[in-house]
Amino acid sequence: MSDRPPPSSPPASPPVGPRVILEEETRSPPPRLDFEWEQAVVPVAAPRPSVRWSGIGRLFGGLALLGGGLAALDAANFVADQFARGPLQGWATLGVVASGLALLGGGAWRELRGLASIRAVDRARSAFLRGDLATAKAEALRWAGSVQEAAPLQPAIRNAASIEELRALLQPALATLEARAALLGRNAAVQSFAVTAISPSPGLDALIFAWRGVRLVRQVAALHGLRPGLAGTLSLLRRTLLDAATVAATDVAVDAAARALLSNRLLEQFAGEAAAGAVAARRMLRLAKVAAEACRVVPPG
């Protein structure tokens, strides 16, 4: 044992100066400290619920509960009243109410499934990002089962040994799907260009563009094995929000350039329309690309 520096304080008072005390030398060097990290991390309190009800959420929830609940109570009372009038009226009313409710439930179920399929894409991408091979494989298998182009890949996916290998296996099928999405985008672009050129009002242009855009997104999603309902389509559409700003900026530039080039009055009249059509067409192409990116089970890059 050796001290550094030598003790300077008297034994009665607490030791003041810092010291290094070497321990007995052993034959084999001592192993490095191992805190068995992760296991050693103390468990924390249960995490707060990750989803909170915002003010607007509560508002809509309350409205839905009032609307749905009161309507259900009203329907039940009505059925009871009808039974009081006679069994035939009662059974007929019950049949109508039950069929209506079944249709509503069926619709809601499909919406939820559509939304869940979009969430599955997010799960798969997050597994790829985390490097979680087991989850990525399970998600890739589920995806390959729903997409015709990828169905033959299933045995190879099961045998993939690493995330990179899995990524490489899925790449060709994804490239094929992207090419098809681009084709769909070009078709939509041609249609919206034509419609914009002949439509009588800008308001109608916007309506047609919106309808064609939603249809395009659903077509692209179907290519990737997704069946998005309304909620699923909305969820896909919001991913294009970010790109909308970029598209708007190029729109302004192209429009200005087109107007500057053509100074003839007659040409100007026509060019204004053509430029608007070109802008709409380019938006469709971009939308197809963005929708395809949003539906990819493998994150880009």
Partner: peptide, 12 residues
């Protein structure tokens, strides 16, 4: 993930 239920519709 976003915190609110409605925010969840807007994605991550």
């Amino acid at each position: 993930d976003r915190q609110s239920m409605l925010g969840g519709l807007l994605g991550t």
